[in-house]
């Protein structure tokens, strides 16, 4: 498989075309975080509802390339129902994976593991990270 084929996996394309948990809510119980990347035009907002120390709900709205849109979508699917601590651990592991750093491989990244191909494209790391970085900030 070429580096490019390994980047554009079917699951990523599926999420790009049908992003999950898309659309923001007007509810102040959700913690909202928007990150724009002015160099490429990415514009991503993540909204997180925390109840009883768990991610009760998560919403996203992402404009950008397929990798940034799909990674926002996959993020929301994985994080729903996780405790805040688990959510942070998974996000850290994911961000280390896409930046080709060492990470705890015992942590189950579930569908997000399809983004491992990003590490071969240093110029695209930001695309895969932006929603996850935005999400982490909503947990603080």
């Amino acid at each position: 498989m070429s580096n490019l084929d390994n980047l554009y996996r079917e699951i990523i394309m599926e999420h790009y075309k049908n992003p999950r948990n898309h659309g923001l809510v007007d509810n102040e119980n959700y913690k909202s975080n928007r990150i724009k990347n002015p160099s490429c035009g990415d514009d991503i907002t993540v909204q997180t509802l925390i109840e009883d120390n768990k991610v009760k709900d998560i919403k996203q709205e992402a404009t950008g390339c397929s990798i940034s849109v799909a990674s926002a979508s996959v993020l929301t699917e994985i994080m729903k129902g996780k405790t805040v601590e688990d959510a942070k651990r998974i996000a850290d592991a994911y961000l280390n994976m896409v930046t080709n750093k060492e990470y705890d491989q015992s942590i189950d990244l579930e569908e997000a593991s399809v983004f491992s191909g990003v590490k071969k494209f240093p110029a695209r790391i930001k695309c895969a990270s932006i929603a996850w970085v935005a999400f982490k900030d909503t947990l603080e």
């Binding site: 490019l4 980047l7 035009g41 390339c65 990798i67 940034s68 110029a123 695209r124 695309c127």
Partner: peptide, 12 residues
């Protein structure tokens, strides 16, 4: 095709 997807093809 978003430009950041296209650029990776050219970069390769």
């Amino acid at each position: 095709v978003p430009s950041h997807d296209a650029i990776s093809f050219f970069a390769e």
